[in-house]
Design a protein around this nucleic acid. Structure first.
Lengths: 329, 329
DNA sequence: TTGTACGCGTTATCAA
DNA sequence: TTGATAACGCGTACAA
């Protein structure tokens, strides 16, 4: 069913049908009703693609995620879709599976008016990303990393990580192992580690490189890194930069015959849905990922209206969730 | 940049540029190179919307999910995007938040050539859904529920649930509590319960309605339903129809001073990522949600080529994951 | 082997 | 208040 068919059925011109559909321009009440009647009868829905071509608006938002099957990603996407829906927008998912080439390809593809705005969940933002982003035809918001000149939604990784370390120190822990990730991920790999180190220094706690391990984001990696640390020394507490790594660490500790938290305390960051239901319930930092998604979407819509507002920096809040996985000494 | 601009820059007609882009028709090697050179220089990307309008193909797949921020949904979406990518397709997410009106609206909207195919993760499929689905302009595949006349990817809920119950019985459990969900969800609410009851009957285990509770999908609901059952009687095992419900149940049991699995065994269905890392590790049924997503996408692509292949019924496999949350009597 | 011209379905401009 | 008509950017039949 095209607008032309509706026009024929209602005995008017396509232009009149369009006016009725979009509620603009004058149209006699009589004809309006005739058109509406036909529209209802045949359940006419305009072709969104033709509308997009004509209006130069696709009413779609693109979201580039590094890995869709993670809780973080799905919470972000949930937030984005929620705001998008309010604006009558659809959400296009581009899953890159951590492939930088894919990320750049999607940036190019999604631009060119295929979507009206892009939200990129960043891990590593390289110069090549920037080169492409500079030429983008549509507004973009980066989520999870800070990028100069671009609106970014960042999680307060520094303060969160610092607070968490400080919390452990205030529970009188002095041998705090660190399980981190590669520095390619600026927010998680660099910032969280820096905050940990800064905090140790502030409280004059000696940094012991034997208590530190760096790997990827997998639960199993957390397990292995914990094992590796244990070969050197048994800490009184473990600070893992994500909840998954913390879970892996806990299992390594248990398998080594240690009790959590009685022998070793463990904390993570992220507050995944099950963190409170683990055994022991995990002390962690709650990040408002869904809210981040909403903020990112709102920022994109703002940029769509006024692209001079680029470069804003939003910092989301966090909350320390103290649960049973930590025991004071 | 439009095709016309490229043509001008390369000193040819738009038609020639199009021929080069799509590798069809004759074009002299010399001109081809000139065109390719310009395309590379200006990094020309054709407008996907104009292409869609012309080709009557959007190269997009729509996925209707009841709740994007669940692990099931994200695993399904991961599978769909993976297959979509192979076919050069994008994935449009429609998150309905369990709202039936939204589901129907999206079905209508996504049709009309906005997408070339639809995958619907079903919960309840009402007559109104069917009325809309019958008129759909694009192929659709239902995932998670069986719908007559439509290609469906179903998880073998009956056998999975039966096997799980049977497993508990073979561990000599006779007082097996059941924590289920409302019958609106055919697969989870009806089929899994029926299999549980059938299995009890087969082994001549008495059904005790006091040991059964029905609620929604939340962890907390699992907690409350377990508490409710405990007011009547303490079973030797608990069969929860999802892992989340099982987790809630475990916590209710622990809070009631019971040990898992020493006093009460607990099982779930779904095998969420953390199931193996819970304490105790959860005995559950592994469903291949990502594979389901892939199958659904492949089925949609098949239907796009040949829509007479409608009505196929794919059953995914499952695997019993026996872990420490069950103890034989 | 190449270019011109039309149409995909819509909206907006202009003239009536 | 209405209707023809011209775009939007692309692909392709047809003519050259």
């Amino acid at each position: 069913m095209r607008i032309k068919d509706i026009a024929k059925l209602a005995g008017v011109s396509p232009a009149t049908v369009s006016r009725v559909m979009n509620n603009n321009g004058y149209v006699k009440e009589e004809k309006r009703e005739a058109v509406l009647k036909v529209i209802k009868e045949v359940d006419y829905q305009p072709n969104p693609i033709a509308q997009s071509l004509k209006n130069q608006k696709s009413h779609m938002l693109g979201v580039i995620v590094p890995k869709i099957s993670t809780e973080t990603a799905s919470r972000v996407v949930a937030g984005v879709t929620e705001v998008a829906k309010v604006h009558g927008y659809q959400v296009l998912i581009a899953n890159t599976d951590l492939d930088i080439e894919e990320e750049i390809n999607y940036l190019k593809f999604l631009s060119n008016k295929s979507v009206d705005g892009i939200i990129m969940m960043g891990t590593e933002v390289t110069d090549r990303h920037l080169a492409v982003m500079d030429k983008l035809a549509v507004p973009i918001v980066i989520l999870g990393q800070e990028v100069k000149g671009y609106t970014s939604i960042i999680h307060n990784d520094y303060d969160a990580s610092f607070s968490m370390t400080e919390y452990l120190i205030k529970q009188h822990h002095r041998e705090i192992a660190f399980i981190g990730v590669d520095e390619k991920d600026e927010a998680v790999g660099v910032v969280r580690k820096k905050a940990y180190l800064d905090c140790l220094n502030k409280y004059a706690v000696k940094v012991d490189s034997k208590l530190m391990a760096i790997g990827d984001f997998d639960i199993d990696t957390g397990y292995q890194m914990m094992q590796q640390i244990l070969t050197h020394k048994t800490p009184t507490a473990v600070f893992a930069v994500t909840d998954h790594l913390a879970i892996g660490a806990i299992h390594a500790l248990l398998d080594a015959g240690l009790r959590v938290p009685d022998d070793v305390s463990v904390v993570g960051i992220g507050d995944i849905k099950l963190a409170a239901y683990l055994n022991p319930p995990l002390t962690t930092v709650h990040y408002t990922f869904k809210t981040s998604g909403k903020m990112a979407a709102e920022a994109v819509f703002e940029l769509m209206e006024d692209d001079t507002k680029q470069g804003k920096r939003f910092m989301t809040t966090f909350e320390l969730k103290t649960r049973a996985s930590v025991k004071a000494i």
